[in-house]
Structure formats: structure tokens, C-alpha cells
Write a protein that binds this DNA or RNA. Structure first.
Length: 420
DNA sequence: TCTGGGGTCCTAGGACCC
DNA sequence: TCTGGGGTCCTAGGACCC
């Protein structure tokens, strides 16, 4: 019999920070988003003080956090990514049917006897905690949606593991419909209005209604809650379809030239990602918009175009992006945010030939980009940069006053251990 | 009075996820 | 002063083609 395990790291970012700070054990810890905008992770102690993720902006909570003696960290995604890799590597020792679903969770498909399931989950949990230092919860069931539901229960239990058998109506009726995977705010409101309040109610919803009001996504959700697998298991990671880089400015920006610098930096980062994944892009989109939280004239627009040949060459990205930016830019507005999106990505070796133009692969541009990446990954990101991104200034500069060291990925930030 | 049918592609917007 | 960022999938409507 095949079962789905869902392994999810508890308050992942906060747990990562605590690995290197044993002095924080038992204390409330939160991690902030880029720009120190929101809380994006809170450990159980912080949650029990009432702190939730993505609720109120950090600046409105800061005083209370200090009063509550909560340890505050700025996001350190380089560290979290490195720890995530370790967790996933360990999990893949257990099953080669693994789908890494996000930075902190993975589905495993396993065929064991039912009476072995809990033992395996406990074993896995202990190994990840002992060897990596991250606590995880494990939800087990027959479909992904039910495994997610099992996870909701597992998270609330001290042992951190739960097996949801098919037709366990008492359990499904204890899960609010809003907590079901695939039900967000809008669908949640619709469902409650219709009297569908729990996962059990949802599993009994007429399929036609689900199809009509929640598209095929809703229909799949209902079927999965009834133990019918509808969401396929992707053990081979799909190549990504888009790469986005965008950010809010620390302060509002008026001028085309400031926007150009920001866009230039986004192109640098997007290009790095493209080459890291050995992909080429066929198209690029640029967007800009004003601050919707302010009561002043609003404006936002995007524009897209295709490249002459599939490329991963940063100067080309910048050239096209700047042209698009000039198309969408209107003077007189105060801009908050801008970004680029690369789409129609293909793998390097799948690039179609072109009779009239030299392909990017094996070009001198590619060699230059490879050298650039070697310097920037070996040293500090941005060691080598483009003049169009501005020199010694970064309009995208993030507020991140409380970032921990990148213990695992920078030699200069490696932890020091002193013997007494 | 009555104004094809079917297919594809593109885009914008909505909904969801972490 | 300060309100995240990066993804996926689905749908409807318009343009266009034969």
C-alpha cells in the first residue's frame, strides 16, 4: 500500500536561527521578511505570545516585541537554504520518491505496512533533529491533501506525528475549512457562507458546486479529502517556468534613472539565478508601481517583450529591461516597487539553433558571465557589478538590521568555537 | 427576423501556496 | 520613516485563423 508522508520543519526560519544560538532555547524568536517588513516565522513561544506571520507590519509591532523580550532576526535566506538542503538530502536517503515542495517541506511516497508508519515517522523525526538540529512534524495519509490535514493535527501534538486513516470523520470535523490545503481567504469565505465549516463538510460538498465556484482546484480538493488522489506526485523537479526579482524601495523614487538602477540590479540577480539553474530565457517583463498604502495618485504598469535569441546574458537583460521601463514610466509619480520577470525558460541544451545569429551558448558573452559568477559567488555578491546598477549605491538596499551570520556559506562568517 | 463553428494563442486577473 | 517576495495554476475574453 502506498502512503504519503508530509515532512514539515517547525517554524523553519526560527528553528534555523536557534541551531546556532543554543542560548535561545525556550525563548520567543521571530524572523522578519526582507526589508524587515513583516514577521515571516515565529517559534512556538512567540506564537503563544500572540505573534502571527504576515499580519501587521513590523514597525507597528516592534515596541511590543521588545517589551515581550522576543529575539528578532532579519531574514537570512542563504542560511535557511543551506539547512534546507541538508534536510532534503537526509529525507532522500529514506525514499527516492521525494517531492521537495518548498524550502521547509517535502512529500515522500512510501510503501510500508500500515503498522510500520508511525515508527518510521518517529525515526525520521529523530534523525533530522539529532543530525541537523531542526524539529519537524510528520503527517501521513493516502493523498496529499489528507497528509496536509494530518500535518495540521501533528503540529498540535507533542509527539509531532499523525496518521490520518481514511474515513476518520471525527478528525476531519475538527479541522476548520480555512485550514484545508487549497482553501484560501476567498474560498473560505464562500464556503462558510454556504455552511461548509470543517474539512468533513468540505469532503461532503457536491462536486458540481465545487467545480462551479472553486474551479477544478476545488473539485480536486473535495476528491482528495475523500481519499482519491488527484494531485500528482512530482519526484522529478520540474524546471521552473519563471524567475522574478523585485523589491520595494527603502524610500519612494521619482526618477527614471533611479528606476533604471534598480531594474539593472534586478536583472543582475535574475541573470545569476538563470545561469545557476542552467536555463535560458526567451522573454522579459518589467513592472513598476506606486505605494497603494498612501492616499495619492496611483499608477502601475507592466510591459513584456521577447529576446532575439534565448539568453542568460545580463547586459542583454538590462538592455531590454531598460527599454521596457522607458515604455511604462510616467513622470510625476512616487514609485514604491519595481521588478523584472523572466519567462519562457528553457534548459541550456534545449536552445533552438538560429541561422542568422550566434547562440548564447559558447559565446564570449557566456564566458564573461561565467567569470562574473565565479567572482560573485566566491566572494561577496555584487563584488563585480554593472555600471548601470550604480556604483557604491543600491537603491534596492534592504533594511536588515538584525541578520545573523551566514554560518554555513561564508568562510568569514563561520561560527567560532572557543575551548576554555 | 435571421449574421458559422472550431481551434489556438495571448493577456490580464484571480486564487492559491510557502 | 517603516506595509514581503517568489512561485503555480486556472479562467475568461479578445484576436486571429481557416
Amino acid at each position: 500500500m502506498n502512503y504519503i508522508f508530509l515532512v514539515d520543519c517547525n517554524s523553519f526560519y526560527a528553528s534555523c536561527e536557534m541551531i546556532f544560538r543554543p542560548d535561545l532555547a525556550g525563548k520567543p524568536v521571530v524572523v522578519l521578511s526582507n526589508n524587515d517588513g513583516f514577521i515571516i516565522a515565529a517559534n512556538s513561544q512567540a506564537k503563544s505570545l500572540g505573534y502571527k506571520t504576515i499580519e501587521k507590519p513590523f514597525f507597528m509591532l516592534e515596541q511590543q516585541l521588545i517589551k515581550d523580550k522576543v529575539e528578532i532576526f532579519s531574514a537570512n535566506f542563504e542560511l535557511y537554504g543551506a539547512i534546507s538542503k541538508r534536510v532534503m538530502r537526509l529525507l532522500s536517503e529514506l525514499s527516492n520518491r521525494i517531492e521537495v515542495y518548498s524550502i521547509d517541506e517535502a512529500f515522500l511516497e512510501v510503501s510500508f505496512n500500515e503498522n510500520q508508519l508511525l515508527d518510521i515517522a518517529f525515526y525520521l523525526r529523530k534523525r533530522i533533529l539529532d543530525e541537523i538540529g531542526v524539529p519537524v512534524s510528520v503527517g501521513i495519509s493516502m493523498t496529499k491533501t489528507l497528509a496536509k490535514a494530518a500535518m495540521e493535527i501533528a503540529k498540535k501534538r507533542r509527539e509531532g506525528v499523525f496518521y490520518l486513516k481514511p474515513d476518520q470523520h471525527d478528525v476531519l470535523s475538527s479541522i476548520p475549512v480555512n485550514d484545508v490545503w487549497g482553501v484560501g481567504q476567498k474560498y473560505g469565505e464562500k464556503l462558510i457562507k454556504k455552511g461548509v465549516k470543517t474539512a468533513l463538510d468540505l469532503s461532503r460538498l457536491q462536486e458540481l458546486w465545487a467545480r462551479e465556484h472553486m474551479t477544478v482546484v476545488g473539485l480536486r480538493c473535495v476528491k482528495e479529502l475523500n481519499g482519491v488522489p488527484c494531485i500528482k506526485f512530482d519526484s522529478v523537479p520540474q524546471t521552473r517556468k519563471t524567475i522574478q526579482r523585485s523589491a520595494s524601495f527603502g524610500h519612494l523614487v521619482f526618477t527614471l534613472s533611479d528606476l533604471k538602477k534598480a531594474i539593472s540590479i534586478h536583472c543582475e540577480r535574475a541573470g545569476e539565478k538563470l545561469r545557476e539553474d542552467k536555463l535560458l530565457s526567451l522573454g522579459i517583463l518589467v513592472h513598476i508601481h506606486t505605494n497603494p498604502h498612501l492616499e495619492e495618485p496611483q499608477y502601475g504598469r507592466s510591459a513584456a517583450t521577447n529576446f532575439a535569441i534565448p539568453t542568460a546574458d545580463t547586459p542583454t537583460l538590462i538592455k531590454y529591461a531598460h527599454k521596457l521601463l522607458e515604455e511604462v514610466y510616467l513622470p510625476g509619480y512616487r514609485y514604491l516597487k519595481t521588478g523584472v520577470l523572466l519567462f519562457d525558460l528553457i534548459e541550456e541544451d534545449m536552445a533552438p539553433g538560429n541561422l542568422f545569429r550566434q547562440p548564447y551558448i559558447d559565446s564570449k558573452e557566456q564566458k564573461l558571465m561565467n567569470s562574473l559568477d565565479a567572482v560573485n559567488t566566491g566572494l561577496e555578491q555584487g563584488t563585480l557589478a554593472f555600471a548601470s546598477s550604480g556604483i557604491g549605491e543600491n537603491p534596492n538596499k534592504m533594511r536588515q538590521s538584525k541578520r545573523s551570520p551566514r554560518y554555513l556559506t561564508r568562510w568569514s562568517e563561520i561560527p567560532e568555537v572557543k575551548a576554555k
